[in-house]
Simulated scan of single mutants.
Amino acid sequence: MNKKSFYSHEDLVVFQLAFETAMKIFEMSKKFPQEEKYSLTDQIRRSSRSVCANLAEAWRKRRYKAAFIAKLSDCVRAACRRQAEAAETQVWIKFAVKCSYIDIEQGRELYKTYNQVLKGLINMINNPNQWIIGE
């Protein structure tokens, strides 16, 4: 699929994956204890949603290469503590597993999915000309 086949950020596989996973996290986090409402629950929901929101904004800025890359970098920063090591959402997933709020298999699946999201974002950053619509 070339860039002309994409009409919206919602057409991007990386966006679809991030959105679907954010919704899974939302559903799972409904079962977290009330005392986590303003800490873990809030943090994991915010970080997972932030990836989607920043990617949507990056898509709208793709007319200008520098703005596009900067906004994609915000996606990665929103998702990452250290770009190549641990996504913020992945850190919260680990906490949720360790606190027994989600089981280890659910945690592994979410963690694996965020590795795919990060890989897709980094690929877009490293290959911006594929996505830019003109400069």
Rank of each mutant, 00 (worst) to 15 (best):
L12V: 05
R63D: 10
Y101F: 11
A53N: 05
Y114F: 14
R49D: 09
V117Q: 04
L118M: 05
E105Q: 04
K119C: 09
K3R: 12
N129H: 08
I104N: 04
N115W: 04
S8R: 03
K65C: 11
C52Y: 05
A78L: 01
R82G: 08
A79T: 00
L17M: 11
A56E: 12
N129K: 15
A67T: 12
D103T: 09
N127V: 10
G120Q: 03
A79E: 05
R63A: 03
E135K: 04
L12K: 01
A67L: 15
C80V: 01
Y64L: 09
R45I: 06
A53S: 07
Y101W: 08
K119W: 09
A78V: 00
Q16W: 06
F26A: 13
W92R: 08
L17F: 00
A70T: 14
S8K: 07
R81N: 12
D42Y: 01
A18K: 04
A84S: 07
L118N: 11
C80Q: 09
L55W: 07
L72G: 08
W131V: 06
R46K: 05
N115R: 11
I44A: 15
F19M: 14
T21L: 00
T21A: 13
I44N: 10
Y64S: 10
A58C: 10
F6M: 12
E20P: 02
F95L: 03
E57M: 12
F15L: 06
K24F: 00
V97Q: 03
K4Q: 11
R46L: 08
T41L: 15
A87T: 09
L121Y: 00
K65Y: 02
I102R: 01
S5G: 04
I102L: 10
W131K: 03
